[in-house]
Design a binder for these strands. Structure first.
Length: 304
DNA sequence: AATATCCCCAACCGCCGCTCT
DNA sequence: GAGAGCGGCGGTTGGGGATAT
């Protein structure tokens, strides 16, 4: 059985549920014979769990936990097995394809990590959840740094990460609480569920933005876009708010690559102008990844 | 070199729904 | 039908390594 025992082998912070008579194990950790262990799993525990499951299967976790001799809860055993020890668990960084798929599925399914994980063989819901959360947090931090005169969520100055701009993190306008409630293709938040916007851009705005990019920062050169901006010249009305003439930091060519399968640039533009009809039909992406929209005169505005 | 901050991710927690008695 | 037990799920925490200052 190909189990990976490489990490969390021995911990110095294993905890126990009750304070009874204690003794030190080989790592100097206080333990008690009859108590349930908590914290990181040791190599020996992993081996024991794998060994037991190989003979008895991975069911009836509470029974397994007791009869195997592991001083763990059934839940803990199950989690350790499913997220780490199970032979088909894939380790290592997510591939670009997997990242794209996660973004797409999260857009469709929301935070249903287990369902998303089913589409990524070898990846666990926990791993996907961690991945997403990391990106969300990072994006949120960058959002909070925004200059309200710009729209830097899409184009972070350091060009390092903002390329991952999942639905829940763009938030160029509108209440933070509005941004996660929409699965599927819905882009316009429910006004009733939104408090007044914290953004200085569009008070009481109701739009959440869905846009996704591939992180190509590893190919990033030393250029910076901080001084280059495009400005929309078209008057745009979004949900009754005039949002014309906002400046967009210029996305330097080739630093970002749009996820073509998502087509979310169109979602983004649709939400921005809130025309009620898709602008996808009149937009197209040229060979050099420039978005062209004849009606909006924003040629070259979005370029990856 | 020391300290602070960031980031990753394993593990835990609480809740929910299903099944069994 | 009620309650207990259990598995599964999503949210959250916290340790520790990596990186920045």
């Amino acid at each position: 059985m190909a189990a990976n025992f490489s990490t969390s082998a021995v911990s110095s912070n294993v905890n126990f549920h009750e304070d009874e008579e204690e003794e030190e194990n080989e790592n100097g950790v206080l333990i008690h014979e009859d108590e349930l262990r908590r914290g990181p799993w040791t190599l020996d525990e992993d081996k024991l769990l794998v060994h037991y499951i190989s003979f008895h299967g991975d069911r009836r976790w509470n029974h397994l936990a007791k009869s195997s001799g592991l001083k763990r809860t059934g839940k803990s055993c199950r989690l350790r097995w499913l997220n780490y020890l199970k032979p088909d668990v894939k380790r290592g960084n997510l591939t670009i394809e997997e990242q794209i798929l996660i973004i797409q599925l999260q857009s469709k399914l929301g935070n249903r990590w287990s369902r998303i994980a089913k589409h990524l063989p070898g990846r666990t819901d926990n791993e996907i959840k961690n991945y997403w959360r990391t990106r969300v947090q990072k994006q949120e931090r960058q959002r909070l740094k925004f200059d309200p005169n710009n729209m830097p969520a899409l184009f972070p100055e350091d060009h390092s990460m903002g390329c991952f701009a999942p639905r829940t993190t763009i938030g160029i306008m509108g209440d933070q609480n509005c941004r996660t409630a929409h699965g599927g293709q819905a882009l316009i938040s429910d006004t009733a569920n939104c408090s007044s916007s914290t953004s200085s851009l569009v008070p009481n705005s109701t739009i959440s933005i869905s846009t996704a990019f591939v992180d190509t920062s590893k190919h990033h050169n030393s250029q910076t876009a901080s001084n280059s901006t495009y400005t929309t010249s078209t008057s745009i009305s979004a949900a009754g708010y005039d949002i014309n003439d906002y400046s967009f930091p210029k996305a330097l060519d080739s630093n970002y690559q749009m996820i073509n399968d998502c087509g979310n640039i169109y979602d983004y533009m649709d939400a921005l102008i809130n025309l009620g009809n898709s602008i996808s039909d009149r937009c197209h992406i040229t060979e050099d990844n420039t978005v062209l929209d004849d009606q909006m005169a924003v040629h070259g505005l979005w370029k990856w």
